[in-house]
Write a protein that binds this DNA or RNA. Sequence first.
RNA 1: UGGGGCGUCGCCAAGCGGAAAGGCACAGGGUUUUGGUCCCUGCAUACGGAGGUUCGAAUCCUCCCGCCCCAGCCA
Length: 568
Amino acid sequence: MKENNTDNDNLPKRPSNFIRDIIDNDLETRKYEGRVQTRFPPEPNGYLHIGHAKSICLNFGLAQSYNGKCNLRFDDTNPTKEEEEYVNSIKEDVRWLGFSWGEKEFYASDYFEQLYEWAEQLITQGQAYVDDLTAEQIREYRGTLTAPGISSPYRDRSVEENLDLFRRMRAGEFPDGSRVLRAKIDMASGNINMRDPVMYRVLHARHHRTGDKWNIYPMYDWAHGQSDSVEKITHSICTLEFEDHRPLYEWFVNALGIYAPQQIEFARLNLTYTVMSKRKFLILVNEKHVAGWDDPRMPTISGMRRRGYTPEAIRNFCDRIGIAKRDSLVDVAMLEHAVREDLNKTAPRYMAVLKPLKVVITNYPEGQVEELDAVNNPEDPGQGIRKVPFSRELYIEQDDFREDAPKKYFRLAPGQEVRLRYAYYITCHNIVKDSTGNIVEVHCTYDPLTRGGDSPDGRKVKGTIHWVSAAHAVQAEVRQYDRLFNVSDLDAMEGDFRDYLNPDSLEIISDCKLEPNLADVKAGDRMQFERLGYFCVDKDSTSEKLVFNRTVALRDSWAKIEKNMNGN
RNA sequence: UGGGGCGUCGCCAAGCGGAAAGGCACAGGGUUUUGGUCCCUGCAUACGGAGGUUCGAAUCCUCCCGCCCCAGCCA
């Protein structure tokens, strides 16, 4: 029996941040009767990415630790860009990340009628008017950053005329773009959002949920705060660029006299070597720089899922980068660390040779096969052991043999003894080359007394390399990914972001040799290929042709040493 | 030259007037049948700058500098 175990003890510990401070304070002052209600409000116009994950973890995480709720709400106020396909993928991604949002999801479009009524209320209160100016004229009348705007000639229409016009807008009497409903606030405000913002536009477009019911659609500013209000949100968390909208957010709920949530802004996530905008993703996909939204090189949730990332790793990453208001550019190494950390504990290990070099054990009996024991996961004894076949002809990694070994090279080289993991010590005594001088085969002898990888005489070998029995090897394709861009701070670069695409972001290796235990693997399975990295089975994989994605390589201190030896 | 924000180690980020957490990265060492993991150690006399208040300031005040966002009938 556990003692003194409150609910909060079981909840994930998360670092403090300014939003938690605000909530703690609100709880203390009973600002919202002790409630915490957040929401994650994606627009269904694209796939979620790691930046959204930050927001998801924040909003759902806050709800969890304060015993509150977090609504999933689709901000579907622009039917020209939104599709059901996206709402489905968003739901899938949020769920996959490990969060749930109760019995139903919310939609801004569910509030269209209420929003409409509130708009009539504002008109009646003399705080909104129908404007006949064209989009271009509205822009001109709005003024500039330094010059105040000027009033529209339609600004002082009577309540009756406004009501009539607005009802006819709804009824579909006017063509797209002909009229808008605007809030009557302050054309001279230093905050441009307050210069009579547009609340409704005429749009004869079919909405993915309301169909053809509406001929007018609310703008973000008019919809968002009121949706929060309807849902009794306590803390409406959004990104920094909406900071300027907060006065408007508050103006609307105050003018309406309805429940007032509070908007809090935090800095969005930026990652090194990565772009993070749906617009740019769309270009990458449409121009075929990547294979799709779920290309494993994409920072989309679906791309990362396909790449082999775990929800746990992404959540840990999000907890660790913190929440603040300063613009930041998080090192992608932080993300990679988070996956390695999780996969190290969970991923079963296998041996796989990606770039094979044939090794013949000349003193090993022809035709003999031994089944050797291999540990499935040294970090988790519970995962047990497996058998791996060993025979006279093997494959090892090309990188694990050097004819002229540099200093500190502990792998196979002429005259140098190494351990074959879980098998035997071997020593190279002969190299076979083809007519052009390429090494095609390496001949070694083994020490039968070192079976399993230990020598009775206690003799040490510095290197241990992985291998696969040639006769038993399973063939596979392995896709290795590198960063999509070759500069760390894309936003700081001049010119188009496509100029910085890394041409080597995808390497397909087609003749990999895998230990036979990998033959029955299924799409989505994650594992470590010993000494190489973490991999997962791609959805393209079939029993005839296995396909793996490299999620992330293992840390490679030998690569670092060698790089330093070569003077960087 | 308008309005709104932000500036703490290479990158994130705690700190909320009492003598600069943590993570990543990096460097060195130990353990090791993954050059993986793990374990040690090091890594800001300093908090954009300059003044001021105070016994005491990254934390309060003033001025200055730098960076980001805003002129969609996008969100």
